[in-house]
Amino acid sequence: MDLKCVVAIVRPDVLEVLERRLGAIHVHGMTVTRVRGFGAHPNVFADDWTTEHIKIEVFTLAENVDALVTTIMEIAHVGAVRDGVVAVLPVERFFRIRNQVETTP
């Protein structure tokens, strides 16, 4: 089993639409965290350079990554500097705490 972790940092206003669309492509689990930060283009004229975003993390099979990334990109893209980022990370080991079983990717 080849597992990946898709991490997206996007504007908070896309979360509701993203949740519905991910359900439609059969992604039924994700972690959402409120985050603050700045990227390559901070607002240097503001007192605080950081902006609020959300970080979404989804563990998925490698074969589902392209559909997941495409969906996130379509929903989060408005053409603004602060649209966000998406990264795909390999998962070396994956454990289910509930039944204490390691799933080998």
Rank of each mutant, 00 (worst) to 15 (best):
Ile9His: 05
Ile9Asn: 02
Val10Ser: 06
Val10Asn: 02
Val10Cys: 06
Arg11Asn: 08
Arg11Cys: 13
Asp13Gly: 03
Asp13Cys: 13
Val14Tyr: 03
Val14Thr: 15
Val14Phe: 10
Leu15Ser: 15
Leu15His: 13
Leu15Tyr: 02
Glu16Pro: 01
Val17Tyr: 12
Leu18Trp: 04
Glu19Ala: 08
Glu19Leu: 07
Glu19Asn: 05
Arg20Phe: 06
Arg21Asn: 05
Leu22Gly: 00
Leu22Pro: 10
Gly23Tyr: 15
Ala24Val: 02
Ile25Asp: 12
His26Asn: 04
His26Cys: 13
Val27Ser: 01
Gly29Tyr: 10
Gly29Ile: 03
Gly29Val: 13
Met30Glu: 12
Met30Tyr: 07
Met30Gly: 13
Met30His: 11
Met30Ser: 09
Thr31Asp: 02
Thr31Trp: 00
Thr31Pro: 02
Val32His: 09
Val32Cys: 08
Thr33Gly: 15
Thr33Lys: 04
Arg34Ile: 03
Arg34Met: 04
Val35Ser: 13
Val35Ile: 09
Arg36Gly: 01
Gly37Asp: 00
Gly37Arg: 11
Gly37Ile: 02
Gly39Tyr: 01
Gly39Met: 02
His41Trp: 05
His41Asn: 05
Pro42Arg: 00
Asn43Trp: 06
Asn43Gly: 09
Asn43Asp: 11
Val44Cys: 15
Val44Asn: 04
Phe45Tyr: 11
Phe45Asn: 15
Phe45Gly: 13
Ala46Tyr: 01
Ala46Pro: 00
Asp47His: 13
Asp48Ala: 15
Thr50Ser: 05
Thr50Trp: 09
Thr51His: 07
Glu52Ala: 04
His53Leu: 07
His53Gly: 02
Ile54Tyr: 05
Lys55Met: 12
Ile56Arg: 01
Glu57Phe: 04
Glu57Ser: 05
Val58Glu: 03
Val58Ala: 03
Phe59Gly: 08
Phe59Leu: 11
Phe59Arg: 02
Thr60Lys: 01
Ala62Asn: 14
Val65Lys: 00
Val65Gln: 01
Ala67Gly: 15
Ala67Pro: 04
Ala67Leu: 13
Leu68Gln: 03
Val69His: 00
Val69Glu: 12
Val69Lys: 00
Thr70Gly: 08
Thr71Asn: 11
Met73Ser: 08
Met73Tyr: 10
Glu74Asn: 10
Glu74Met: 05
Ile75Phe: 04
Ile75Gly: 06
Ala76His: 11
Ala76Cys: 09
His77Met: 12
Gly79Trp: 12
Gly79Asp: 06
Ala80Gln: 09
Val81His: 14
Asp83Tyr: 02
Asp83Glu: 12
Asp83Ser: 11
Gly84His: 04
Val85His: 07
Val86Cys: 09
Ala87Glu: 06
Ala87Asp: 06
Ala87Ser: 03
Ala87Arg: 07
Val88Gly: 01
Leu89Ser: 15
Leu89Gln: 04
Leu89Pro: 12
Pro90His: 09
Glu92Leu: 08
Glu92Cys: 10
Arg93Tyr: 06
Phe94Tyr: 11
Phe95Asp: 12
Arg96Asp: 07
Arg96Ser: 06
Arg96Ile: 08
Arg96Val: 11
Ile97Ala: 01
Asn99Tyr: 05
Gln100Leu: 09
Gln100Pro: 15
Gln100Lys: 12
Gln100Trp: 12
Glu102Met: 07
Glu102Tyr: 08
Thr104Met: 04
Thr104Lys: 11
Pro105Leu: 06
Pro105Val: 10
